[in-house]
Computed example of a mutant assay.
Amino acid sequence: MAGKAINPLLKNALELGPIILFFIGYIRLRDQNFLIGGTEYDGFIVVTAAFVPLIALSTLILWRLTGHLSKMQIATLILVTVFGGLSVWLNDDRFFKMKPTMIYLLFGGFLGFGILKGRSYLKFVMEEALSMQDEGWMILTKRLSAFFFALAVLNEIVWRTQTTDTWVYFKTFGLSAAVFVFLMTQAGVLTKYAIETESDDAA
């Protein structure tokens, strides 16, 4: 079921705001250490501890405004809470760095499972926003599933071999840029398999 429409700028602010604030917070606190309850935490862990409730709040506001959350939004919130919580609880940043890997593996696996059954679960999620022939949906689903798996592998390589600074920049800008570039390269599929609506025919 589709949710109520809200201002696109507000929607983007709620979805991207927590990520931007995480980046800003990390840049400001990365060289600091905090003694809390007798345990010393570095800036990354402190910012992670603030990020988890922040993204939960933004997701709650988005749900209250639209009356709807996508399965991806729900899964992302759950994984952020679990892996962010583990990082804070165990005072170990590796769990939070693994979070994008788990998210992309989940999304890629979800789409891949549908492909094995001969179905496009991407169509199930997005067909209300995009009209396209079944063949086009399957092509896009296969490409997106492979893309998600590639991002999972890439995140593992970056956080395991690079500094925390590098990973934060990669997480904030690199992954977003990769998704944007991927979507732009799929314009041909969207155009080729698009289904014209009645309004298009009338025009």
Rank of each mutant, 00 (worst) to 15 (best):
L144T: 14
I19K: 09
E40V: 12
V189R: 03
F110P: 06
I115H: 06
A178W: 05
G67D: 07
V46L: 13
L190E: 05
L122E: 08
T66E: 15
L16C: 11
I115R: 06
G108D: 05
E196C: 01
G118T: 09
A187S: 13
A129Y: 06
R119P: 11
F95S: 03
L65V: 00
R119M: 15
D31A: 05
I78V: 15
M126C: 11
G43H: 01
I36T: 07
F96I: 10
F149T: 02
F173D: 07
G112Q: 08
T66Y: 09
A203N: 13
L175V: 13
K123T: 01
S145A: 14
I115M: 08
T185S: 15
G174T: 01
K117C: 03
T81N: 04
D201R: 15
W167G: 02
V47E: 11
A177G: 04
T101A: 10
R30E: 06
R143W: 04
L116D: 05
I27S: 14
G84K: 01
R94I: 12
R94H: 14
V181D: 09
L116P: 01
G3R: 12
L69W: 00
F22Y: 03
T66H: 12
D165V: 02
T185W: 11
P100G: 03
L57R: 07
E128P: 01
Y26E: 05
Y41G: 07
I55R: 10
L35H: 10
Y169M: 09
L140F: 14
Y193W: 02
F34K: 03
R28C: 10
I6W: 07
Y41D: 12
I78M: 13
L79Y: 08
W159D: 07
P100K: 03
I61P: 09
A56M: 08
F23A: 11
G136M: 04
D93I: 14
K171Y: 14
I36M: 06
T39W: 09
T172H: 09
E196G: 08
